[in-house]
Each structure stands twice: as C-alpha cells, then as structure tokens.
Amino acid sequence: MAQNVTSPTSTFSREIFERRLGVFLKWFSIAFFILITVFPFYWMLNLSFRPFQDVLTDPTRLIPRVQDFQTVFAPLSCIFGGDPEFCEGAVRNSSYAAVLIQFNFLRFIRNSLILSGLTVVLSIVISVPAAYAISRLRFRGRSAMNWGILLIYMFPGIVISIPLFVFFVRIQQSLGIQLRSPVGVTLIYLASTLPLALYMLRGYFDTIPPDLEEAAMIDGATRMVALWRVTIPLAMPAIASVALYVFMIAWNEFLYALLFLIENPAAWTLPLGLQQLDSQEVPRTFLMAGSVIISVPVIVLFLFFERFLTGGLTAGGVKG
C-alpha cells in the first residue's frame, strides 16, 4: 500500500527531472546538428573566398576579411575590358575567376547543364508511358517487370561499368560509333535513373482513380488521348519531382563520367572537372570554389522544392 502511494510522486519527480534534461538535450542536439550539417559548407565558402596565401599563413581563420571579398569580386570589373595586367592578376587571385576561366568551369557548367537537361527530358519521355502501362494495363510479364525494376535499381554502378567499358570500346572499334562520349553517358544515366522514375511515377498513377480516364474513354477518347489529356496533367507533381531527382542525380554523378569522358576534356562535366582540380599544383582554395559552384545549384533547387522532394524521397527511397 505504501508503495502505491509513493510511486506516483517518485515518477512525478522523474517526469520533471527528465523534462528538464530533455530541454537541455533538445537544445544541445539542435546545436550539434547545426554544427555538423552547416559548418562543413560554411567552411567550404570561407576557404573559397580567401586568397590562397592567406589560407597558408592562417589556415583556421573563421571569417574572411573584407579585402578577401574585394579580391574575389575584382575580376568582375574586367568583364567590360580593363588594364590587361591588372585583370590577369585579379583573375589569378580570385579563386572563382581562376576556376571559371583558367580551369574551364564555364564550359563544364554548360556541359553539365546540357547533359543533365537532356537526361531529364528523355527520362520523362520514356518513363511516363512505361509507368502508365505498368500501373494501368494488364500484360504478361508485369510482375517480372516489378522485380526487374527493383534489381536494376539496386544494381551497383561499378559492376555494370566494367562490361560497359569493354562494350563501348568494342563498338567504337567495329562500328566507329564513339559511345565514350556525352551520348553514351546520357544513355547510361537514362538507363540507371529509369527504375527510380518508374517506381515513383507508377506509385503516383496508382493513386489516380482510373474512373477519370474511363469517363474520357466512354466519351470516345482513345486511351492515349485520355493519358495525355487526363492522367498526365493530374500526375504533374510526380513528374516534376521525378524530373528534379533525375536532374540532381545526373548533375552529381561521378563514376560513369570518370570512366567514359576522362579522355575527352572538352566534354567533362562539373564533377569530373572538379576532380581534375585535385592535384598538388592547384591551390586548395580553387578546389573549394569549384565545390561551391557544383553544390550551390542542387542545394538551392532542393530548398526551393523541398516539400515536393522530401515526399518523393520517402516514397521512392532515392538511392544514394
């Protein structure tokens, strides 16, 4: 009996104690997670803004000085001409100008944009009809298809890349078609993002009631017209998030670009160009400026469409 009386008070004090501890833990955790998620990116920005000489003498300066920003933006004054001698020095001292101009990042940005954009468009064109078929139509091999999607989705790039490399070399030898090129890489990106696109789109098509199409078909529309006029407009949110994911995957991709584009510097994508900055002769600050250039677009894109994308992420379990 006595125990019954005391136990509520003891758990009551435990409740209060744990609540106070919880408040402390909560703020400690918030600080911890902000530190580990934001600081590395802050550090990247910081190093990219500071001249290499300054980083060498003071590697741990936390905040760039005002004159550092002046150095970074000095080349801007040279866009419309200027003293050539001054401009040459300004470009050399500004990590961003050096990376964009001397190290051809302007070209790599263009290459990456074209490659990723092309992959997105083709991927949508191929995956929307296929996902519709898998979701709506009955045909032999449909369940095998589901298993195949999963298997290919999981299949590691490194294993595929060996025979693909051999295959592409042989095609070039015997047919004269160079697939170790942006064309070949686009094909690989398409094939490897297809399972994700199919998975996400099929899931979305499943949630659209077929009655809507059927109504259109009863009114005389063919299935293709119903798909085009009714289902695709309804599936736009899913199509947009697939497009964003495919874009981000293609933009970030490194292994296939390394294997199939390395011999062709004019066709390098941003990740490949960035990897080439990783050498003893190139200042580390240039490496960080390159990292900023490649990261900022995807982070901005993601933040902009966050709600869209996090839903897709948990639905499709985006590989990474």
Binding site: V38, W251, N252, F254, S295, F302
Partner: peptide, 14 residues
C-alpha cells in the same frame, strides 16, 4: 538534408 543532397564529390573534398 544538406549532407545528403550536396554532391558527393564536394562533400568528400570539404
């Protein structure tokens, strides 16, 4: 989400 969405190549270099 930053660590997950940033390109692997830049996070590795950072």
């Amino acid at each position: 989400l930053f660590p997950y969405i940033a390109p692997v190549i830049s996070t590795a270099f950072i």
